[in-house]
Computed example of a mutant assay.
Amino acid sequence: MYRMTGPAGVGKTAIAQSCAEEFRSRCHLGASFFFTVHGCSDYSRFFTSISYQLSSKSPDYHEILDKKLRLDPTIVRKQLRSQFRELIVEPVRELELAGKSIGGRVILVDGLDECKDKEAQREIIEIVTTSVVTHTTPFYWVFFSRPEPQIEAAFADYSAASLCISTLLPISRGIDGEIELYLRCGLQNILRRRGITISHPWPSEPDMHTLVSAAQGLYIYAATVLRFVGRTDTQYDPQELLHIVLETSAQSSDGGSMRTPFEELDAFYTLILQRVPNGLLSSIQF
């Protein structure tokens, strides 16, 4: 087992997506699951999704799974441990007995801390750890998450700690070069999609320096800038939208006090909320 932890916004999901793509290109990816607060936070879909993805890569696994679900459609509504046993452990065992192992694949899980049930977060770790200890599944499990107390406690358990390699991804200005490259490529893609040609370098070097400094090592700031500048539901063009971002950054840095890494992000999100079109305000939920 492997896990990467770090605070919000440092790029864990970006790394997880890159890893998933790389494993997929090498045919090593068994399954991936990305928990998100406003997307998929339902833990009851976790093992069902993993089993479905595994079955899509093995006709024999698919046949076993299909038979199981025909005989007992209620499996998908059972407790997590029962789902894991019936949808993953038992099909894997049946394949191994038939000499058709699907071992050696990676199962990648991102954002476990965004699973809506904290007890389910702990239970998922315990189920997977027990499986690794007892060799009931032949997979490499990879987790990406924030270091929430219940997750840290579950991984601190002796059986998990002895089997898991952990990496901390801190907030660091050491990745400024990577954030700059990410912003440059993203901004150029926005111009290309909009069919806009600019004769001079955009953004300028001072403006790019301002953006990278504002990010303070947080990929989430850079990603939010690109989403804001790439908007098509406004009368402003990308250059004007980027100018708004730069003005906001200049205003937030006028104070002489020490800033936290999230202060720029807070100011930027305030700007975005202020720019929400009036027609959309009624549909926004807080």
Rank of each mutant, 00 (worst) to 15 (best):
K57P: 03
K57V: 01
S58F: 11
S58P: 11
S58V: 09
S58C: 14
P59Q: 12
D60L: 12
D60N: 15
Y61I: 12
Y61R: 08
H62L: 13
H62T: 09
E63K: 15
E63Q: 15
E63R: 14
I64A: 02
I64D: 05
L65A: 06
D66N: 15
D66E: 15
D66P: 11
D66G: 15
D66A: 11
D66T: 15
K67F: 12
K68A: 13
K68M: 07
K68R: 13
L69Y: 09
L69H: 04
R70L: 11
R70Y: 05
L71T: 13
L71Y: 10
D72K: 11
D72S: 08
D72H: 07
D72N: 15
P73T: 07
P73F: 05
P73I: 08
T74C: 00
T74Q: 06
I75L: 12
V76E: 07
V76K: 13
V76T: 13
K78L: 10
K78Q: 13
Q79M: 09
R81V: 03
S82I: 14
S82T: 15
S82Y: 03
Q83E: 01
Q83S: 00
Q83F: 00
R85L: 08
E86V: 14
E86I: 15
E86M: 14
I88K: 01
I88P: 01
V89W: 03
V89P: 01
V89A: 01
V89L: 00
E90Q: 14
P91D: 04
P91M: 06
P91G: 10
V92Q: 07
R93K: 14
R93W: 10
E96Q: 15
L97N: 14
A98R: 09
A98I: 00
A98C: 02
G99C: 02
K100V: 02
K100E: 12
K100T: 01
K100A: 09
S101W: 07
S101F: 07
I102E: 08
I102L: 05
G104L: 00
G104K: 06
R105H: 15
V106C: 12
V106A: 13
V106G: 01
I107M: 09
I107V: 15
D110K: 12
D110V: 07
D110G: 11
G111I: 04
G111E: 04
G111C: 04
G111N: 00
G111F: 04
G111Y: 02
G111T: 01
L112T: 10
D113R: 12
E114H: 05
C115A: 03
C115Y: 06
C115H: 05
C115M: 07
C115N: 06
D117A: 04
D117F: 05
K118R: 09
K118H: 10
Q121A: 08
E123C: 00
E123Q: 14
I124K: 14
I124W: 13
E126I: 07
E126T: 13
E126D: 12
I127Y: 04
I127P: 06
V128N: 08
T129I: 10
T129K: 02
T130Y: 10
T130A: 11
T130I: 00
T130P: 00
S131V: 01
S131Q: 08
S131N: 05
V132Q: 14
V133Y: 00
V133S: 00
V133H: 03
V133F: 03
V133R: 02
T134F: 08
T134W: 06
H135A: 07
H135M: 05
H135E: 12
T136L: 07
T136C: 03
T136I: 08
T137E: 03
T137G: 00
T137M: 00
T137K: 04
P138D: 15
